[in-house]
């Protein structure tokens, strides 16, 4: 029995991973088409406006075979992306993949702790609101949640920066580390946390609002289910009843987080620009400023492929957690 179940599970995971292949293919095809239909010579898109020499242009034309038929070019494009070759940024002078890889950790440092902490707090608030649905307290939380996700992160970021960093001077205004007084070890960590605090809270406001709202709705729905009546009929305490409802209400949260991944990353990127955080957002901002098309295309492809993979990952996690899928 156990063996059969784990087989099912393996099949489920493999199936879900295979399902990402057509999607990833489409993503790569979309970015190829974009380069082709963009106004002007594709070479502009492929090298940006970073003043490469004629020799470099000739070398790129030869390497990418831009004189060859379009399907050959498409094939080359696929092959190079599969080799993680996203082109070369003449503006920043470096392979696009390396530029992205260098900045990605900083983005994750900003995004993940904030996502984790504020998702948990948001869910807690939502669950709290759901204990007395449509009460004054619940209505107030609902309205605050709507206000919370109505304010764009860059607006909130600018205001927080003005108030807490610029006027009150509680936090540094820009960057990730204090380069004037570099500290290592514990001091370095404290410095990083001071820089992280404000952007992370600003970013978290959105997760807080979105998840409070989601958890509230899911919890109210779960509390109305028959098995909750059943649990009450067994004389279980309100705490246990809530726990049972919570378990059911939180399962869809995994899926929702996966589906919102692009949104979460968008927020992070925008907050980075406000706070001069040296992650993908700053990189993107500079790429737009410098008309660095290879870098922009690379960012798009990486993010899009990342979204496809994260969606698959959350589906798999959901399958592992939910017995109805796990043992199906």
């Amino acid at each position: 029995m156990r063996g059969i179940r784990s087989n099912h599970l393996a099949v489920f995971i493999v199936k879900r991973l295979l399902a990402t292949i057509p999607l990833m293919t489409l993503v790569i095809a979309v970015s190829f088409v974009l380069i082709q239909i963009a106004p002007g010579d594709p070479i502009t898109v492929l090298i940006g406006e970073g003043n490469p020499s004629d020799a470099q242009i000739a070398e790129i034309r030869a390497r990418l075979g831009l004189d060859q038929p379009i399907y050959v070019q498409l094939w080359h494009y696929f092959a190079s992306i599969l080799h993680l070759d996203l082109g070369y940024s003449y503006v920043s002078s470096g392979p696009v993949i390396e530029l992205i890889a260098a900045r990605l950790p900083n983005t994750l440092i900003l995004m993940l702790p904030s996502l984790l902490i504020f998702t948990v707090v948001g869910v807690a608030i939502g669950v709290y609101a759901a204990t007395r649905p449509y009460s004054a307290r619940d209505n107030a939380i609902s309205v605050l949640a709507v206000l919370g996700y109505s304010v764009p992160v860059f607006v909130l970021g600018q205001m927080a920066l003005l108030f807490f960093a610029s006027w009150l001077g509680w936090f540094p205004t820009q960057g990730m580390r204090n380069f004037r007084a570099p500290a290592t070890g514990l001091g370095g960590l404290a410095d990083l946390l001071m820089h992280l605090a404000l952007p992370a809270v600003v970013l978290g406001t959105r997760y807080l609002a979105v998840n409070a709202r989601f958890a509230r709705t899911a919890m109210i729905e779960a509390l109305g289910q028959d098995y909750i009546t059943s649990a009450r009929a067994q004389g279980l305490g309100e705490g246990e009843v809530q726990r049972q409802a919570l378990r059911n209400a939180l399962l869809p949260l995994i899926t929702v987080l996966g589906m919102n991944f692009a949104d979460i990353l968008t927020g992070t990127v925008l907050v980075e620009i406000v706070f001069g955080w040296p992650g993908l957002g700053r990189l993107m901002y500079d790429a737009i400023f410098g008309r660095d098309y290879p870098l922009l295309m690379g960012l798009f492809v990486i993010v899009a492929l990342g979204v496809v993979l994260i969606n698959a990952a959350t589906d798999i996690i959901y399958g592992l957690v939910d017995p109805r899928i796990r043992n199906a």
Binding site: D226, A233, Q234, N248, P323
Partner: peptide, 29 residues
């Protein structure tokens, strides 16, 4: 009160419901 009722439910008075699918928690063994 609610807690006094909790002590009686499932103990002195039990219930069996109509639809055995929806009245069992789907994600609990």
């Amino acid at each position: 009160s609610r807690s006094e009722m909790q002590a009686l439910r499932g103990n002195v008075v039990g219930m069996v419901f109509q639809d055995p699918m929806t009245f069992l928690n789907p994600v609990m063994a």
